[in-house]
Amino acid sequence: MNFWLLLLVEIVVILVVMLVGALVTIYAELKISAHMQSRIGPYYAGGKWGWAQPAADGLKFMQKEDLVPAAADHTVFRLAPYIVIMSALAVWVVIPFGPDLVVRDLDLGVFFVLAVSSLSTLGVLMAGWASANKYSLMGGLRAAAQLIAYELPLLLAVVAVVVQAGTMSLNGIVAAQAQPWFTVGGIEISAPFLIKGQIIGFVIFMVAAVAELSRIPFDMPIAESELTMGYLTEYSGIRFTMFFLGEYASMVAISAIAATMYLGGYWIPGVPESALNAVGPFVLLAKVAFLVFLLIWFRWTWPRLREDQLQDLAWRWLIPLGLLNIVLAGIFKVVL
C-alpha cells in the first residue's frame, strides 16, 4: 500500500482508538464511582444507561465561551493543552495490538514511551505558568515536583522488565512473555512478567503511573480542595476538554503499557501465533479494562497525599525497591 495512505489510516485509527477509549473510560468512571457511592450515575443521556453522557459533556464544553485571562501569556496558554493531548496520543504509536498490529514497532519502544509520556508535565507546567493565577502556578509547580518523584521509580521498574525481556521493543517484550518458561510433562508453560518475578516492579509501576496521571491519591497538581483546580483553574470550554480527554487518554495508554509489559499484552496462553492478530486487540483491551478499573477503584477509595509525602514514598521506598527489583530481575534471568 502507498506509504502515505497507510500513514493516514494509522493516524485515523489511533485517533479513533484514543477518543473512544477516553470516552468509554470517562463513562466507566462515572458509572463505577456511582455504584461505589450508592448513586445511579448518568441515566438519561442517549436513551438508556446514560451511555451518551461523556459525548454530551464534550458537546456542552464545545459551546462554552473560550476564556483566556487578560494577564495570561496567550501563546503559551493556548499551546499547553495541545502538548498534553499530544503526549497522550504519541504513546499509542508503539503499543502493539497484535504481532503485526502496531503503528511503528520501534526498537526503543519503551524509551519512546517514557520520553513522550513525561512531556505532558511540560504542558501542565506551561498551563500553570501562563494562566497568571497563583493557584495555577502552584499546581504547575507541584506537577513539576511530582515528576521528580515518580519518574525515577517508573524508569527503574521498566528497566527491570527490559533486563528480563532483553529488548526495548514492546513487541519483543510481549514475545518474551510468550516464550515457554518451563515444561511440565511435555506441556510448555509460559507466563507474563507479572508472574515471572516482576510483582514488585508491577506495583512500583502502578504507583508511579497513578502519580504520572495526577489521579487520587496523587492528584496534588489539581487538588480541588486546596488549589481550587490547580493548573486547570483558568481553563474553560474546549481547552479544558482537551486536558480532560488527554487525562483519560493517557490513563488508557498507561494501562496499555502496563498490560503489555506485565500482563502479556495481546498475548494469551492457548491461542496460536497465527490467530493473535485477530484475537490480540480484544485480549489487550480486556487487560487494559482491568487496569483502568484498578485506577478508578484507587481514586474513589483513597484521599489525597501531600506533596512531601509523595517525595517521601518515592525516594525512601519506591526507588530502593526499584533498584532491588533490577537486581532480582537479573538473578531471575540468569538462574531461571
Partner: peptide, 15 residues
Amino acid sequence: PLELGATTPLMWALR
C-alpha cells in the same frame, strides 16, 4: 474526607 480528597465517604454519610 472530601477536603482530604476522598469523595466516597461524602455520599455514604449523607445517605
